[in-house]
Amino acid sequence: MTSSNNNYTPPSEEILIHRVIEGDSSREDWLALEQLADGDRCVWERLARTLQVEAELRRDGKHAVSLADHIELTSEISAPRNFLPRWAGWAAAVVLAAAWVVGSFSSDSGDPRNEGSLPASETQTADSAYMQYIQKGISEGRILEELPRVVMETRPAAKGDGVEVLYVRRLLERTVVDQFFQAGSDDQGKLTPKPVPMTRFVDYGSF
């Protein structure tokens, strides 16, 4: 925005003040401002006042827009879109479905790698262990349901064959507690759990 040539035409006072605030003034701009101030000493006062009101606006404005930090998109809806092509969601769903079917049946369906002397817990796949966890959790009333998986990213597989899918598995679980704690510190500054009154959570339907 600055200029340093012989054809310099002094801009208006508001532009000069603006450039000073932006830290964008050329030597010519400063000279022009000084010349203006020679005829009207209030120029410096107006510059100072502009800086002051802007600082006030910045302080309040930053607080105000910080409200936006509390508005989140739910990952369930936002993540699968991810600016991927429209078909990518379907492709990811197919990949996940395939992985699910393969994962569910492969570990216990005659895979010779599962036969041997090691206990089942050491030979089962992550998928079958996960399924067992869900089944056990449901039977105990701890797991309410498995929520739809969230695709975080799809990208070409490193070996150049297929698509690598990064996704999150989510379980809705329930537990009953008789006390909440938060991290606190004692007189010596040592980290200690501090009980939180249960009444504080009564009003929350969900977090």
Binding site: A64, I71, E72, L73, S78, N82, F83, L84, E153, T154
Partner: peptide, 18 residues
């Protein structure tokens, strides 16, 4: 388009949206 999760993009942009 860049493959960035939408919620990450939202977090970057939401203050000027405000």
């Amino acid at each position: 388009m860049e493959r960035e999760p939408l919620d990450i993009i939202w977090r970057k942009e939401r203050r000027w949206v405000a």
